[in-house]
Design a protein around this nucleic acid. Structure first.
Lengths: 246, 246
DNA sequence: GTCTATACGATGATAGAC
DNA sequence: GTCTATCATCGTATAGAC
């Protein structure tokens, strides 16, 4: 879950290269990072952020290393000092966003009120779709193409997490706190409806003329998703979402 | 809607080339097509189908013309006899699938029973996600990247159609036949939940270990989507989907 | 209509000076 | 660590023979 070491298995054609690989485990930035190391990691972060913007818009093959270098304000040669290949940058971006991705679901509290907890999860997912649509889109691109780079992570970390939370939801059903629904399909529905506003924003903008940046539209969208999701959970009563704006 | 002529505006860098452009309006294949023309169009169709598979998996830039040629069983040079550029192939594929895309929504009947009509629409969309996930994925890829190639079509044909059907749904609401929901958001929710099973099948397979090819899983998924969507429409009673399998 | 050969640009990646 | 120069490869597209 904590994105471990990038040396594990970047999937396809692997090219060994020594260089700066020693400090490659960016997330394990312990307490004793020197000024140099911090500077190094900061630069990598800038590059990863620039790459996220570009990759989320044009995909792995639609972006050149030169574009990334330019956007990150480093020379192309220098880019290869920080990363040994374009794929390594791509995977780096994906790994980083995946952990952000799992956090909200991980936070689903078994002890909380089910409707409240799931409602909060939906609201949080909507906030994320608004705040960071680039990540949502890049993730979408990767999955649609068959998850060639992070398939392993999905089958391990993600599956474990989802199965665990599905058990929580199933328990809620069995206890009669929510209607009887298939937990996995419920989670898929939540992901689908919330991420749709980030991933398909071009289509939504073409039709509705608005995006989540429009505060009113954001509230309408959230309210509607809540109605749809929570509606499926009501055992007969209380189908109403908790937020009542617009 | 009928995909008009490709000469209109393929977006970026446009290169003029005469050649076989005369017969380029493939959909307008009238009754008096000669044997040669039919053969010509058939070949183009084979190429487009091969291209769909590849593009949906790797995106526009992730596929080479050589791969397309090989998959369509023509020489690379010959490929350029049928199409004047890779982008033309890409747009050709997109235009073709877009019309299939609009058809089901277009068929939503204002005179029908609302719950039945929307339920049928959902079921049809699920069937399409199962039958032709490649198209769904390619469409998704294009939209996620900002719809650079078909943005115009979305703002015209698609918007017109959706607005028209949204009015139908709004009328149903006003007449008290379904709950009061925002028609556009309802449509987005339907698209999101149904297409999710095609677009994110890699993720779903990683978690659930199953896809829509599994008949039981397909029924579960459909039932669940119906529960979610129709549940949002119920005015108080009849939240139950019509299909009761598994 | 189909093939062989090839021009030509773009791009991922490296070498080596400073 | 950063730069200039450069290589090798790939991929689009064209020319011209058959």
């Amino acid at each position: 879950m904590t994105s471990e070491n990038a040396n594990s298995k970047p999937s396809p054609a692997r090219r060994l290269k020594p260089r700066a690989e020693i400090i490659d485990n960016e997330s394990a930035a312990g307490p004793e990072t020197s000024r140099q190391q911090r500077r190094f990691l900061a630069r990598k972060a800038v590059i990863l952020d620039a790459a996220l913007s570009l990759f989320s818009q044009s995909g792995l093959h639609g972006v050149s290393t030169e574009q990334i270098a330019e956007a990150a304000d480093v020379s192309k040669t220098n880019l290869f000092y920080y990363f040994s290949s374009k794929e390594e940058i791509y995977v780096g971006v994906l790994k980083r966003l995946l952990s952000d991705w799992l956090a909200p679901l991980d936070a689903l509290d078994p002890e909380a009120d089910p409707i409240q907890a799931i409602g909060d999860y939906v609201r949080l997912k909507m906030e994320m779709s608004r705040a960071d649509p680039r990540s949502s889109r890049l993730f979408c691109l990767e999955i649609v193409q068959g998850a060639p780079m992070i398939g392993d992570e999905l089958r391990t970390s993600l599956k474990t997490l989802v199965d665990r939370k599905a058990a929580v939801i199933r328990r809620w059903s069995e206890d009669g706190k929510i209607a009887s629904v298939d937990p996995h399909h419920l989670i898929y529905a939540i992901w689908a409806t919330t991420q749709h506003y980030a991933d398909f924003s071009a289509q939504i903008a073409a039709i509705s003329g608005r995006t989540l940046d429009d505060e009113l539209f954001f509230r309408e969208a959230t309210e509607n998703v809540l109605r749809v999701i929570l509606g499926a959970l009501s055992t007969g009563v209380e189908a109403k979402p908790s937020k009542g704006a617009a």
